[in-house]
Each structure stands twice: as C-alpha cells, then as structure tokens.
Simulated scan of single mutants.
Amino acid sequence: MTDTTRVLLEVDDQGIAQLTLNRPEVHNAFDDDVINQLISCLKEVSDSTTVRALILRSNGKNFSAGADLAWMKRMAQNSHQENLEDAGRLAELMERLNSLNKPTIGLVQGAAYGGAVGLAACCDIVIASAEAQFCLSEVKIGLIPAVISPYVVRAIGERQSRRYFLTAEPFSAEQACDFGLVHEVVATSELLSDAAARFTKQLRKNSPQGMHAAKELIFAVSSKVIDPAVIDDTAQRIADIRVSAEGQEGLSAFLEKRKPNWIQE
C-alpha cells in the first residue's frame, strides 16, 4: 500500500508548489515507492496551469540520505531485469525534475548523499544551509552514481567528478557552491523562509512561458558548437516568442510602463 504521507505536495495561493520528502525518521531516504510518488507529483506540477514554480525540500535534519537501506537490500536480491526496470524509474525521476516546465528551487539542509546529490543537480536553483554536506558515496558499497551522473557531471564538471565519484569523500556547502552545484549558502534559519521567499518573489515577476522557453533554450545550446544550425535555431526561438501572446503582452507592458498580466500583486 502506498503511504501518501512520505511525499507531500502543496500549492499556495501564489502558485508556488512545495514538494517535500517527509521521512525524517530515516533521514528522508528514498525507495521505489517514494520515487514513484515523486514522479506522480512532478507530472501533476507539470500539467498544472496555476503552478508558477516548484520548491523541492525535506522535513527534518537532513535533506536526504539517498537510497533506503531496505530498498537496496531488496534490489540486491532481484534479477538483472528487475534492477534495470527499477533504475529506469529513478532515471525517469531525475529527467522529469531536470526538464520540468516550471522553475525549480532545491533547498538542502544537513546531509545530501548519493541520489540526493542528483536531485539537487536537477534543480534550476539550489540553496544550501551552511551546515549542509554532500557526498557521492556509492563506491563505498561497490556501486556507482550511474543514473544521476549526467546531471551531476554537468553541474560540477568532469574534473571534480573524477575526484568525488572515486573518493566518496564528503564536501561542504561552500565547496558545492564553488563547484557550481549550489548557488547560495545561507544560515539554516533562513533556508525555508527568507532565501526561498526571495527567489519565488523574483520568479513570480517573470513570464511563465518565457521562463519555460529560457530553460529549453539552455538545453538547446549547452555544449553545442556555435554553428549555423544553432544560430538559426536561436533566431527561430526569439521570433516565435516575440509573436506569442505572452511575448506581445510583455513588450506592450514594458512600452506602456505597466505591469504585465502575469503579475497579480
């Protein structure tokens, strides 16, 4: 039976969704049930016409200890095919979070181990408490950070990955910020209040369509050679959005010195 209290999804009247890991008794470790619930919640957020941004967070002392021990024990007893299917669901979770059509903010406190580093790497903006600690710990138990690797390597680069994938040593929030995994480090007391509110306030000023298109633009040009195909694609994208409803509204509001209609304040 699915326990719907392990993952919580709430949307406030400003259109800010909070997706919360709620297993503090096991340091918010995740298993196949939690992964499936997270995927379901991300689908709901993606389909929503009222959600403006998503905050990914957790209750308790730690963001997430990564994979649940009981789940890992169960997976070790399963067949190769069952393990492949199970890994596919985790891969789906990472890709859904990474490509979500809304801005995402990750709030990290305490420990973020294993797959939890992947969750952070898939968020658009990550804020960590000063006491947060990250670790790609998989090799300690004979495994590898496989399905999270595309996102983590993209976030921290190949050079840091070659160290931390192999050593499994923890690194601090400040180091994570230097590596590019984290954008800001704040006091724990500010994490769920001032820091999150500051970013959501900024995001709510922006065109929902514009932010979605900007995110797709990043994926379209990242690591690409600037060749005629890329140049033509970027020209097509700006032309498309200029004549769109929100593009027209935004330009009109700017010229008329008024707020665009997506700002409801």
Score class of each variant (00 low, 15 high):
Cys122Leu: 03
Glu85Asp: 13
Ala146Met: 10
Phe134His: 00
Leu97Pro: 02
Tyr113Pro: 00
Ser189Ala: 13
Leu181Gly: 08
Asn78Ile: 02
Cys135Trp: 03
Pro150Lys: 04
Arg198Asn: 11
Arg154Lys: 15
Ala196Asp: 03
Leu84Lys: 14
Ser79Arg: 08
Leu90Ala: 07
Val147Asn: 12
Arg204Phe: 07
Ala195Pro: 04
Ala87Ile: 11
Gly142Thr: 03
Gly180Pro: 11
Ala112Trp: 07
Phe199Cys: 08
Leu90Pro: 03
Pro145Lys: 00
Ile127Asn: 06
Phe199Lys: 09
Gly142Ala: 04
Cys123Arg: 05
Ser207His: 03
Asn206Phe: 14
Leu143Trp: 12
Thr167Tyr: 05
Ala87Pro: 01
Ala168Gln: 13
Ser189Tyr: 02
Ile105Glu: 04
Ile127Gln: 05
Leu100Lys: 05
Leu203Pro: 08
Leu93Ala: 04
Cys123Thr: 01
Arg163Tyr: 15
Ala87Gly: 14
Leu119Val: 01
Lys140Asp: 10
Ala214Leu: 15
Lys140Gly: 13
Thr188Cys: 14
Ala120Ser: 14
Ala121Asp: 06
Arg154Leu: 10
Tyr151His: 15
Leu203Asp: 08
Leu107Met: 06
Arg198Asp: 09
Ala128His: 02
Thr200Ser: 04
Ser149Pro: 09
Cys122Lys: 01
Lys201Gln: 13
Arg154Gln: 15
Ser137Val: 11
Asn101Tyr: 00
Val153Asn: 07
Val153Ile: 15
Phe171Met: 05
Ser193Asn: 12
Tyr164Arg: 08
Ala112Gly: 09
Ala132Leu: 01
Glu158Ser: 15
Arg89Ala: 00
Lys102Asp: 06
Leu203Lys: 07
Ala120Leu: 11
Glu158Thr: 15
Leu97Ala: 02
Ala196Trp: 04
Asn206Lys: 15
Ser149Arg: 10
Leu100Ile: 12
Cys177Pro: 13
Asp194Ala: 14
Pro103Glu: 00
Ile125Leu: 11
Thr104Lys: 09
Ser172Leu: 09
Leu192Phe: 13
His80Val: 11
Leu84Val: 12
Val182Met: 06
Ala112Arg: 05
Ile141Ala: 04
Ser207Lys: 04
Ala214Gly: 15
Ala146Trp: 08
Asn78Leu: 13
Thr200Asn: 02
Glu138Trp: 01
Gly118Asn: 09
Phe134Gln: 02
Asn101Lys: 12
Pro208Ser: 03
Leu166Glu: 13
Val182Trp: 05
Glu95Cys: 09
Ser129Lys: 06
Gly157Gln: 07
Lys140Trp: 08
Thr104Val: 12
Leu119Ile: 00
Gly110Phe: 10
Arg198Met: 10
Asn101Ile: 05
Ala116Phe: 06
Thr188Trp: 11
Arg162Lys: 15
Gly88His: 03
Ala128Arg: 03
Gly142Cys: 00
Leu166His: 10
Val108Tyr: 00
Leu181Met: 09
Asn83Trp: 01
Ser207Gln: 05
Ala130Glu: 14
Met94Val: 00
Lys201Asn: 10
Ala87Thr: 10
Arg198Gln: 14
Gly157Lys: 05
Asp86Leu: 14
Glu131Val: 12
Ala213Ile: 08
Lys102Pro: 03
Ile105His: 02
